[in-house]
Design a protein around this nucleic acid. Sequence first.
DNA 1: GGTTTTATAGTACAGCGGTACGATGATCAG
DNA 2: CTGATCATCGTACCGCTGTACTATAAAACC
Lengths: 172, 172
Amino acid sequence: MSAALVRCARVRGLHHCGFREVAAEAGVSVNLVQYYFPTKEALLLGGLVHVRGLISERFAGLPTEPRARVRSLLESVLPTDEASTDLYRVHAAYAALAFTDPALAAQPHAAGPDELRPVLSGLLDELGVPEPDLTATSLLAMCTGLAAYLTSGFLATDDAVRALHAELDRVL
Amino acid sequence: MSAALVRCARVRGLHHCGFREVAAEAGVSVNLVQYYFPTKEALLLGGLVHVRGLISERFAGLPTEPRARVRSLLESVLPTDEASTDLYRVHAAYAALAFTDPALAAQPHAAGPDELRPVLSGLLDELGVPEPDLTATSLLAMCTGLAAYLTSGFLATDDAVRALHAELDRVL
DNA sequence: GGTTTTATAGTACAGCGGTACGATGATCAG
DNA sequence: CTGATCATCGTACCGCTGTACTATAAAACC
């Protein structure tokens, strides 16, 4: 049912996702949605944890060799196909909503660097990169920016991947 | 009056900015808002052009010496004080809304790299940096990502500035 | 077997928000 | 002076949306 909310948010926007829209998208009754998510705030939170889960799935099954692991991890941040682009758009809508909604702001945000930065910093340290923490921040910020450009259509996928690879070649 | 909309969007979110809220914030009547912005779409577009103007102001008065110009230009992308942070949050809300609103998607977005990348690329070329276009994309993406981290509170201002300076020292 | 819980649906109410219609003073052209 | 346009306001309507109340079948539990 959370998947129906995400589909609805992708098409009509997150703020237009009411009980009726989600119910219609899921093919059930309005009250069934309200049965699982008693209030609208709960509905939005349910959608957010679903989005977080989908994003986390993108970072599963990475290679173990450190250099390849760093490369794959950062590549996974970039939305490459249409599904991941939609996912990131919905997540961006959540991030924007969290600026003014305290309940959403209290929720942890998966695409924030807080989860990835420690592990990336550890890998860079293992690889002997100087100032691993600062470099991890820079690399993640660059990928976040490239992801933003991709979701907004300011950049082609190939250009983003090329920019990331050039930066990685320079760092590693 | 557009300023009232931006103030309102900063506090209560862009989607909660109706005629009544903006009118109350501006201290005028509801119909006066509707007099200048006949429909809600016009109201939102008016706010967007105002935000774009405020963002463009941040890139005025840059130094002329190329190296310092690059540095100042990229520093101007980062929101440093509370006012610019609020501005970028509202702009992020507009960007998220543009994912589903065709009228907003048709409007040019100032914080997109389309305006800054050519001038930055030209400066880098002038400075003899190899692959100036790719480097410009990387630097702008990194600043956009750092700006996103700053607006979301994932990063301290000092850390963002330090990461940018380290990257600039490596590139130039 | 009866009772409680679960999963589903219909309907109704109250509030909010965009929009339309009409009215009033001010300013300006002829 | 008079008509017209501009700037401003109050009110009202209609639709949408969150939420509550109620009902029903199935399943589970004692």
